[in-house]
Design a protein around this nucleic acid. Sequence first.
DNA 1: GCTAATTTTGACCGATTGGTCAGGATCATG
DNA 2: CATGATCCTGACCAATCGGTCAAAATTAGC
Lengths: 226, 226
Amino acid sequence: MSVTKQAALPAAARITGRAARTKKRTRIQVGNEERILDAALAVFSRYGYRGGTIDQIAARAGMSKPNLLYYYRRKKDIYVAVLERTLTMWLAPLESLDAAGDPQEEVRRYVRRKLALSRSHPEASRLFLSEILQGAPLLRPKLEQELRAQVRRKAAVLQGWMDQGRLTPLDPVHLLFTIWATTQHYADFDSQIRAVLGRDAMTETMFETAEATILKLFFEGLGVEG
Amino acid sequence: MSVTKQAALPAAARITGRAARTKKRTRIQVGNEERILDAALAVFSRYGYRGGTIDQIAARAGMSKPNLLYYYRRKKDIYVAVLERTLTMWLAPLESLDAAGDPQEEVRRYVRRKLALSRSHPEASRLFLSEILQGAPLLRPKLEQELRAQVRRKAAVLQGWMDQGRLTPLDPVHLLFTIWATTQHYADFDSQIRAVLGRDAMTETMFETAEATILKLFFEGLGVEG
DNA sequence: GCTAATTTTGACCGATTGGTCAGGATCATG
DNA sequence: CATGATCCTGACCAATCGGTCAAAATTAGC
């Protein structure tokens, strides 16, 4: 395997089939890998790892099954690649929570970024959730290490703000769970939202209403003086 | 098929195999159907309809595959039965929201009931979500009719309370989405919560903290005067 | 245009999956 | 205890699935 070739690639695009052993990375490889991973995202996010098939992915990528396997040697390799491609994207918003920032503004910004991700990458959200539903067999090490460490760091930031009386004191980890839940809901429960609000519900306006509702609820609460 | 026999059964237990044609419903049938549906819930909630197999369900139910098919003729029949069995449970908490009650207390009660469901029936929550991730092919008619109608009725109740100044005015449908998201999170994202909080995280104490956090956030909000 | 490298595919394989069936085992009833 | 009904299963089937391979087609570079 060409060290300089593979080393230069984003991790998510690490191919494992015969195509990995060519002397140079070619433009055909670049295009096909992206098509394969896009198709895999669509299939796995809907049917999970076990329910999705190589035939489905190949058909959706517009190539034959043996051709797809020329790039990724095994079904699991495709799954790992597409999952890793979305994971970095997933950790970024929380990573950007800034201890030096204004507490309320930082939390608002975080909620907005998460909602924007749900809007722009709903399939990635559903793929992540599909992996969680299956017990997180592949993601578990990363969740227990990277995510857990990140949550601890950022929970400490939130706790500090609460201790200073700049945010209502409550459990910071559960607060993060709540933010994830409400924002990812708009990707994960797409079908239910459409059932309730109508088939064409996922509009910019709907997301704006969602953002307004979540932020108002989170910052003002339902309680009224009286 | 014996009309009096089938008519007396809960819909969710409607068997479709040869066992459905016996003269009387027997104690063996009662026991096996429950075992099959329990096993199906465990398998389908993890792997989805396509990813779960009849072999897995049979093994988990402690019977052979042909024996399982003696009760439910097709894989889809099993899936429909187990899904329908959980759906009634799913609509009940919202149905109980009482327009004549105290607004804040009614919402608190609803949140508590939903969290209790997540705690007592996490697999049912995950099964429901798995169906949603697949585009709700089976549930769609019910979601578009029963759920939509229910949401509209209860959103009107919430809107009435907001118009009277008894709850902070915001979008009632999105409020319901937020309540669903946050409470179901504790069932659906089980594996991620364990990764962050530890393998034995799903304790009574954790759920109490979740409840306290969600209710405080929802009723007081994060904002503090200053 | 030629040649080497890369890409592609139809045919195929073994394993798995959903499902069937005849006949034996067990249960229920009188 | 006998008999009819119900329950259960080993063997089997066709289709699907993950994956292989030799050879043809295409591409890239000179």
